[in-house]
């Protein structure tokens, strides 16, 4: 088990290292001078421009040798300094991102967990009968094939415009200010529902199909046949097959995280939901490069953390990894 985690941690550290390096490298070695571009944009605001100019020279320290620039970048990063947002001047990027994080967590955590649980259970049920399978599987395939933003748009159009039962923009109504009242909480939930639901649905399709395929495979496994030959009741065989099938679904979740995060980005754009995806769109449109770099790092850190959590859960559910045997985890 120590070896298992040791290996995982090494991968994560290397990944983080690589990600930070990319984050540092790209602005410096891309054609053109994006930072100058950015400064040109904010120059309407002359104080901002001069502060940025100073910051920029300091941060990029173009007079310094490259390795020192690189070390400085790390030093700043470890102090939590990701620069200053041009678009939300003079807010530090870290603070801007911190404000957005709760929305991402509120959206992603329930969407990921619930869709995974529901999808797995649904898929297991679908594997039971031909009739169910023939109706559920095509729907599942269509759902996973749907681009996240499109399902979001369709839901917004149908529930937000045609039926007019859900708001389709923002995290809460402009007319309300954040308080701990029922009215406000209700309003927040109302705004949260559609983005959550569209994230949920696309993933749900994928998990349902994955489980359906895995469980059919497991029901054909030798240990299932043996139980059948010994006349064990169907319920026991199904339970064992499910328990075995859940493991690859769990490592599948780790592998899907990147895709899910990308889905969340575009879903937030559709619903103007103030998470990192929405920020990112604004940052791109305003050529706010520090903010873009910050979003990149935050996404990486988030995915690495989630991966780590999944690893721990995997060890908890797969005894083989605990016993130092090699498990299936990715």
């Amino acid at each position: 088990m120590r070896k298992y985690f040791g290996r995982k941690l090494l991968i994560y550290l290397l990944t983080f290292f690589l990600a930070v390096t990319i984050d540092w490298l790209i602005p410096r070695f891309m054609p053109g001078n994006p930072v100058a571009n950015m400064l040109a944009r904010v120059s309407v605001n002359s104080t901002a421009a001069s502060v940025m100019q100073e910051y920029y020279t300091h941060l990029f320290g173009l007079d310094l040798p490259l390795w020192q620039q690189y070390l400085n970048f790390w030093a700043n990063l470890l102090r939590g300094d990701l620069g200053i947002s041009a678009y939300l001047f003079p807010k530090p990027v870290t603070q801007v991102l911190m404000n957005a994080i709760p929305y991402d967590v509120a959206l992603l955590l329930p969407a990921i967990l619930l869709s995974w649980l529901a999808g797995n259970n649904f898929g297991a049920v679908a594997a039971r009968s031909k009739w169910l399978d023939n109706t559920v599987s095509p729907i599942g395939y269509i759902l996973t094939a749907t681009p996240y933003m499109w399902l979001g748009i369709l839901l917004a159009w149908f529930f937000g415009i045609i039926l007019d039962v859900f708001p389709i923009a923002g995290a809460y109504s402009f007319s309300l200010s954040p308080t701990l009242s029922w009215k406000f909480i209700g309003d927040v939930l109302l705004h949260w529902f559609l983005p959550f639901f569209s994230l949920f649905m696309v993933q749900f399709g994928g998990w349902a199909i994955g489980m359906r395929n895995m469980i059919i495979y497991e029901l054909e496994a030798d240990y299932s046949h043996y139980l059948e030959a010994l006349g064990a009741p169907r319920s026991l065989i199904r339970r064992y097959a499910f328990n075995n099938a859940v493991l690859p679904q769990l490592s599948g979740l780790a592998l899907q995280l990147g895709v899910i995060v990308a889905g969340a980005l575009v879903t937030e754009v559709v619903f103007s939901y103030p998470g990192i995806g929405y920020l990112l769109l604004a940052a791109i449109q305003n050529q706010d490069y520090f903010l873009i770099q910050g979003c990149f790092l935050f996404i990486i850190i988030g995915v690495l953390l989630a991966n780590f959590v999944i690893d721990i859960v995997y060890v908890l559910v797969d005894p083989r990894t605990r016993r130092g045997m090699t498990g299936e985890a990715a």
Binding site: T15, D23, L257, V259, V261, C295, I299, N307
Partner: peptide, 15 residues
């Protein structure tokens, strides 16, 4: 595999 593809794509594309 761990790095979210989209994040890398967008940081490159953005520049």
């Amino acid at each position: 595999l761990v790095i979210p593809t989209m994040a890398v794509l967008l940081i490159i594309a953005a520049y």
